[in-house]
Structures are given as C-alpha cells and as structure tokens.
Design a binder for these strands. Structure first.
Lengths: 193, 193
DNA sequence: ATTATAACGTACCGATCAGTATGTTATAAT
DNA sequence: ATTATAACATACTGATCGGTACGTTATAAT
C-alpha cells in the first residue's frame, strides 16, 4: 500500500557510524551525513529521528559489534595470556597502520558526550563494564586451567585491563613512538602470571 | 600614546581555559567565550587571535601548570610508592567530588583534535611524554634509594603509568562505581615493588 | 590642548547549522 | 484503473556560527 524504502537502513546506519566515529558528534554535520549515507535529509529524520538519535543508534551498533569482536577474539586462543597478547598487538597494529586514527567510537563518546549527557554516560559505562566482565571471565578460565596463578585478583585485573585498553587507545591518537605503546602492553601483560 | 587594555589577559585566558576544558573546542562558541571571559568579541581577536589560536594558548597554559602540579605532587612524599598512591587517590577523589567532570584538558584535546590537527597531535604527545619522564625519574629515585627493586623496567613502567592515568581519567567520565577505579589503582600500584 | 593610537561596544557579515514544509513519485491494496 | 500511503527530492526556515567593519572613547606623547 505504500512506497518501499529505496535505501538499505543498515548500510545507511553503518555509514553514519563511520563518520560519527571519525569526527565525533559536534563536528559531524547533517550535510556530512547525507553525503556519506547517500540519502536525503528527510530520509534520515524519518528513518532514524534527529541527529542525536541517529548518533545513539550508530553507537549502539558499534558497541554491539565491538563486544562481539572482543569476545570472539579472546576465545580464539587456548592460552589466555597469548589471547590477550594477540588482542592488544592487533589493536596497536591496526591503529598504527591505517590512516584515519579513529580510535574507539565508545571512548570518543565517553570523552565528548558522557560528561554532559546522562544517556551516553550510561551507555558508554555499560559497554566498558561489559568488556570488564568478558576480561574477567577470560582470566578466570586461565586460572581454572592452571595457566594463571590461583591467587590472582581476577576482578581487579580485568578492570585494570579495561583501563589500560582505554589509555592505550587514547594515547595512540597523539601518535607516540611505537615503542612507547609496545612497552606498555608488555608491562600490562606481565600482570597475567 | 594608546588606550591601555582594560582587562587582565591572564585572567581572560584562564576563563577561556576553563570553558574549553569543560566543553571542548567545537562545543564552545564565541558567545560562550565572551560571556565567561567578560570581554567583547573584538577584544578576543586582538589579544589572542582566532578561536583556534585562543584554544592553543589555553591548552599551553594548562599543560604548563599541569606539568608543574604533577612534578611537585610526586616530590611531596619521600616514599615513591606512597607518592604515586597519593597522586592517584587525589585525582580520583577530585574527579568524583566535583560536579563538572572535566577530566584532563590535554586528554580531551587528544581525543577531539589530535587525529585531525597535527599541531595538537604534537602538543598533546609532548605533554604525555613529559609526564612519562617525570614518572620515570621518580621511579628511578625509588630504585636509587632502595625502596624499589633494582631490576624494575623503569621506562616501561613509567609509560604504563601514563597509559593508566589516561585510562582512569577517561573512564571516570562515564562515572563507574568508585570501586572499579579504586581496584585499578591498587593493581597499577602493585607494579611498584 | 591637540593628536595619534588602539581598545572599546555595537551591530553587522556571509556561511552554515539542525530541522521541516511541500509537492511529486512509486508502490500495494482495492 | 483507482486510491491511499509513505518515501522521495527540492528548497526553504529561523537560529547560530566564526569573524569583522565601524564609529566612539580613553590614554599617552607632544
């Protein structure tokens, strides 16, 4: 009975995610969005609501896929420590290879919006807490298997890894010498023993 | 021969620093600035140049005073480990007590501007590298005095403390439970032995 | 007292912002 | 084939953006 949508909502949302991720909320204009999403302004509003609602949808898409990525990434390796090593080294390599240097969409949002918008404070916090749980479960798997010491403070350690992950992601935005980051990763991994 | 300035440049710059620190570059308007600095628009341009030059001056003022604060803060305590503990605990307490939740101006800038503006990439990197040097010198003082193990990787440890400091500052923007941060501080301090 | 100079306040500039009114077009149900 | 519906493209809204032109005022040197 009605005219069907001509664009793929999921692809459009993905495009919005990419540009918000790269430029942040304030620096991204509606014109930027229509250009990259390949659709007109009213289509954005009818499909996603206003700019902030679109941003929220994009962030939710990001955290969902990022959580899944982290989870499977750590499950890939039978050794917990090697799993974490591969995870960190991969992240560092990715950030140094590519051009844009976008970091993590969730962390960017934590800095830009969370202090001024409770909705994003909650959203970003919940993602980091979820990562912390994944890390803790992974560490406990290592304890269970005997790979890691039984007296490890698994919760505190997982929380510290979240903190370190954020710190590494952010400092890489200033492009420090690669050795700076590599050294830090090594010291952080030394906590897993 | 000329009419003298009626406002205190240093106070005006300080006001600009406060608001840029709180809201970031993009979200701060010229109207915000004239309001908080207590001067008119043309006065800003004649005294500080355009918005980005003013921002740069404000950031330089911040990094200068922050460096001095960190340096003296760590010198206050004769025990290196207790010095770091006091430093971290103070930072956490400050961030949780106050309302605004501004974090660190330099870190905010690293996230917002460094990936898109080489000048700020350099500026923010240099500040973090400077902090790393302060931390390393402090750790080496502890090694020298016998408080810390002689086989510590002082450089890597200092770099890791920078990374942790950034991570803690950023995650506090999402207001995690206090215990999350406290636990992380404890684990990080455990590296100093 | 006159004059040169720059800081001052006001009021403006074109550009761009987020968001929308409107008329047209395409589709599915009848 | 007709009709109801919503997606579409165009073009617009008022507001606000960063930045500046300009006329006035206050000061210091003469």
């Amino acid at each position: 009975m009605v005219r069907p949508r001509e664009f793929d909502e999921e692809k459009a949302l993905d495009a919005a995610m990419q540009i918000f991720w790269e430029k942040g909320f304030e620096a991204t204009s509606l014109s930027d969005l229509t250009l990259r999403m390949g659709i007109q302004r009213p289509s954005i509003y009818s499909a996603f609501g206003d700019k902030k609602e679109l941003f929220e949808a994009a962030l939710r898409k990001y955290t969902r896929s990022h959580s899944a990525y982290v989870r499977t990434s750590l499950q890939n390796n039978s050794s917990v420590k090697e799993g974490f090593r591969a995870f960190f080294e991969n992240m560092v390599a990715n950030e140094y290879e590519k051009g844009p240097n976008r970091g993590c969409f969730c962390i960017n949002t934590m800095v830009e919006l969370s202090p001024h918008d409770e909705k994003f404070e909650v959203l970003t916090r919940e993602h980091e807490m979820y990562l912390s749980v994944i890390f803790q479960e992974t560490i406990e798997r290592g304890v269970q298997s005997g790979e890691l010491d039984a007296d490890l403070n698994t919760k505190g350690l997982a929380q510290t890894i979240v903190v370190s992950l954020i710190g590494l992601t952010v400092i890489m935005k200033s492009r420090p010498e690669r050795s700076f980051v590599d050294n830090s990763v090594e010291v952080i991994l030394s906590l897993l023993k």
